[in-house]
């Protein structure tokens, strides 16, 4: 690969460059910038500008449909004195950590189980990815009914296997509600981990396993000493991705619990939504949304640096 790209990038243009020396590079960059201008302007207008405007909003007292007044860091101070804000922070970190861990371990197990030859393997792989494909809101509706206080099929199962007490109200109990959204997020995201890691597993040369087996390594040792180190880069990048989107999750919680009961499942995104869209306080809402930024920025920088290194 290195030899080939050298001949392609280096040698051929260099020979050509001799023909039309300086104009060459110019035209390459002119073409590039002209080509990239429309998408870059689009992103500047609808991502860059809103981002800066969001920072400005967070420094304003800005009721919806009214002009804003500059209040400095007052919104952020309000947040720091708001016990719900602290609960929301703790919830978001717990949710992200627990769901990520479950997805990582479960995804690894799924990948290892799927990394065997068996009939209909492609069909099974396609079916396993369904939770990840289907619009989250729609599959969450199914979960809502699975966890329904009166007609929960889970509680019917509990009764059927002989649990004498009536089943719990899954979304009415703060602890169970949090556990429920963690499990459902895991249900949806696990296939992404599993299938990506499976693709990684398939690149591990079988000779490595054979060599390890000859050296007397047990199944667990082969997994820990051969598989895991080779998968590590993929695990890292998949995890970083998934952490970003779990941390900023909105849909699942909005549909399933609206952040309740008593804010037990309220996350940054849903809380910001409630304040901005429910209570109409755009400035305060923007400050809650921006509270996500430091953690997200760290993760985003980590991913981009990592991708650049590759």
């Amino acid at each position: 690969m290195t030899i080939r790209s050298e001949t392609l990038i280096g040698v051929v243009p260099r020979r050509r460059r001799a023909a039309s020396v300086s104009g060459w590079l110019d035209r390459e960059s002119v073409f590039s910038w002209l080509m990239m201008a429309p998408p870059l302007l689009f992103l500047a207008a609808l991502v860059g500008y809103p981002f800066c405007y969001g920072i400005l909003l967070s420094l304003q007292d800005r009721p919806v449909a009214h002009a804003g007044t500059f209040v400095g860091l007052k919104n952020f101070a309000t947040n720091l004195n708001d016990p719900i804000f602290w609960k929301v922070s703790a919830n978001t970190f717990l949710y992200t950590a627990a769901a990520t861990l479950l997805k990582m371990v479960g995804g690894l197990a799924l990948a290892v189980a799927m990394n065997q030859q068996f009939p209909l393997k492609n069909l099974v792989r396609a079916l396993l990815l369904l939770p990840f494909i289907v619009p989250t809101v729609l599959s969450t509706v199914a979960w809502m009914w699975i966890l329904d206080p009166a007609f929960s099929v889970l509680n019917w199962f509990l009764l059927a296997v002989g649990v004498p007490k009536p089943g719990p109200s899954w979304l009415g109990n703060p602890v169970l509600a949090m556990a429920s959204i963690i499990v459902i997020n895991t249900w949806r995201g696990l296939p992404f981990y599993g299938i990506t890691l499976l693709a990684g597993l398939q690149t591990v040369p079988p000779e490595l396993y054979e060599a390890a087996t000859i050296d007397g390594a047990s199944g667990w040792q082969r997994f820990r000493l051969v598989t895991l180190p080779l998968l590590q880069p993929i695990i890292l990048i998949v995890t970083l991705f998934s952490v970003i989107f779990t941390f900023a999750d909105f849909q699942l919680v909005y549909v399933l619990t609206h952040g309740g009961p008593q804010n037990a499942t309220q996350l940054f995104a849903t809380y910001a939504f409630d304040i901005a869209m429910g209570a109409g306080q755009l400035g305060l809402g923007a400050s809650v949304a921006l509270a996500m930024f430091p953690a997200l920025a760290l993760l985003i920088v980590a991913v981009t640096i990592y991708m650049r290194k590759k």
Partner: peptide
């Protein structure tokens, strides 16, 4: 530019929805 594009890809919507709604 490549890094900027990658970074923008990773910006989740909840970070932008309030200013976008106003826009």
């Amino acid at each position: 530019i490549a890094m900027t594009v990658a970074a923008i890809y990773l910006v989740p919507q909840p970070l932008l929805f309030i200013p976008l709604a106003d826009l």
